[in-house]
């Protein structure tokens, strides 16, 4: 999970006020397929696209989005992972976080349209860090942002181009995205906070 604070996960089963599922596995698949179509429409095809997922859970979502785009257009969409740990602005506020490797497709990102993929868009700080990381890897023609869930509460002037689901939340709620590749199941869950 690449957003700080409240999205860091804890088991939900014991949440006192009960967790509720807002997206099922099928919903997630449908959202990714729709986003795939949106990306193609916006880009007028799948030419020059590079999909980069932000670990942890943005990475498998990025691979699925690239596959969805590829299935529609009948091509292989270059896909990779962009680790942003070294670019975070909150490193000194948290215990040491391990850094992971980035995997950039061999084509590179120069003059490509990079689609960043993350699970939850919250403060926007992860994306700011991702933009810094991208700038040192090359100069994309454009950068677009696709997220599975936009929960609001931005702290920076950043917005997503493609959103799986807008999820109005309060800050004391916890949004958890679970994906098969990491957690063994696909679900988006809200827990905590005042009953709404």
């Amino acid at each position: 999970m690449s957003c700080p604070d409240l999205t860091e996960s804890e088991p939900t089963s014991k949440a006192p006020d009960g967790a509720r599922d807002v997206l099922s596995g099928d919903d997630i698949s449908r959202a990714l397929r729709r986003i795939g179509h949106e990306v193609i429409e916006r880009n007028k095809g799948a030419e020059n696209l590079v999909v980069l997922g932000i670990p942890t859970r943005g990475a498998p979502l990025g691979r699925r989005l690239a596959a969805a785009i590829g299935a529609v257009e009948g091509i292989d969409v270059p896909v990779g992972e962009l680790d942003i740990t070294l670019y975070r602005d909150d490193l000194r506020r948290h215990p040491m976080r391990p850094a992971h490797r980035s995997h950039i497709p061999p084509e590179g990102i120069d003059d490509k349209v990079v689609v960043l993929v993350d699970d939850v868009l919250y403060s926007g700080r992860t994306i700011r860090a991702a933009l810094d990381a991208l700038a040192e890897l090359g100069r994309p023609r454009a950068v677009r942002l696709a997220v599975l869930v936009d929960r609001g509460h931005r702290e920076l002037p950043i917005r997503a181009d493609h959103v799986g689901k807008n999820l109005p939340t309060s800050r004391d709620e916890r949004v958890q995205v679970r994906v098969v590749e990491v957690d063994g199941l696909d679900v988006v869950r809200i827990s905590g906070g005042e009953a709404r």
Binding site: L86, L91, R92, R93, H94, P95, M96, R97, A99
Partner: peptide
């Protein structure tokens, strides 16, 4: 990185 990056108090 491992010695300096994190929050000292942790």
């Amino acid at each position: 990185y491992h010695l300096l990056a994190g929050d000292e108090s942790t």
